[in-house]
Design a protein around this nucleic acid. Structure first.
Lengths: 167, 167
DNA sequence: TTTATCGTGTTACAATATAACACATCGATG
DNA sequence: CATCGATGTGTTATATTGTAACACGATAAA
């Protein structure tokens, strides 16, 4: 977990030093690619950096727009989707299914399940620890007979900041 | 919960009497619409019935195809999406975000969170009780400061039947 | 009978994602 | 050095999922 998150909450404080988030995410990505002998090409790195531009999920076509900023040519959809597939495969980003959008992974160092808190007002998405849920998951495996391989949780509601604003 | 599910598991047995599932789902829908003073029109009922045609999520365009069977004219997308919106609103169906598909709700009598086990092999989707997860959710609310309003869980893996086949 | 409301039909289009094939780069190997 | 294979990208076209906008029709209340 990045150390510059709000001490009172797992949500990033609106005033936090976000450049530090971006930098540490890119550093982690370079390390992971080195370890797994994968190439973090310019396109892939740029897409990852743009995704880390905020703590809000961003769609593939918004990424295309962002990539086009200051460039002569727009890239075509397959270029972005290939980068996204690569980053997803390595666990550097997650897909938020309810939004058709993508967000940086807080801790790509190991594979893990995908638990997110998503603010319905400002779109902030915060990854959270699946740990506390695993007892219930074990019980469910037993009961259901399913061999559960993947867990995708999306909690929707108001983030601490938007709650204050709405009072 | 329908009574004709596999006694050993919350997953419906491949050989279960599925017509009973359809019938009870439609009966429950009629009752709910009466209670809420909503109209279960022909289109809406037909869509619900088609969704209950299996325990597998079905996409909007597959529903359009199914609606067209034996008819002279195809309905246009808005017709299906309006019916889906109505059924979603009333809680008669759920949307499986990871599949862009829709499935009947096992228990529409009260609002509830959306927890599903989904077989990656045969697409079987089984709704499950959020109860065992709520202690962890409470803890998460405290910790995160989020006002969680909605929970969407999708577990992916192999259903009991496909596990046997894959051995 | 008129009017308001609700549900549907129809056309067009937006948003998200992929298939298929061409080309380019680059390191390994003969 | 030459070339071969693997990987990444460019390009065009298209598939899939979902909505906007406006017209029409039925029904029931005033």
């Amino acid at each position: 977990m990045p150390s510059n998150l709000d001490a009172q909450s797992i949500a990033p404080h609106p005033d936090h030093d976000h450049q530090a988030c971006i930098d540490s995410a890119l550093a982690a990505a370079r390390e992971l690619c080195r370890d797994k002998q994968q190439k973090l090409t310019k396109t892939r790195e740029k897409v990852l950096q743009l995704i880390w531009g905020s703590h809000r999920p961003i769609g593939a076509y918004s990424l295309m727009d962002a990539l086009a900023e200051g460039e002569q040519k727009r890239v075509a959809p397959p270029t972005v989707y290939r980068a996204l597939d690569f980053l997803l495969e390595l666990g550097l980003i997650h897909r938020i299914n309810s939004l058709n959008a993508y967000i940086g992974c807080q801790d790509p160092s190991h594979e893990h399940h995908c638990y997110f808190l998503i603010c319905t007002s400002c779109n902030l998405a915060v990854e959270t620890d699946p740990g506390p849920f695993q007892a219930a998951v074990s019980q469910l495996k037993q009961q259901s007979g399913f061999a559960i391989r993947q867990q995708n949780m999306e909690f929707n509601g108001l983030c601490p900041h938007c709650r204050e604003l709405s009072e």
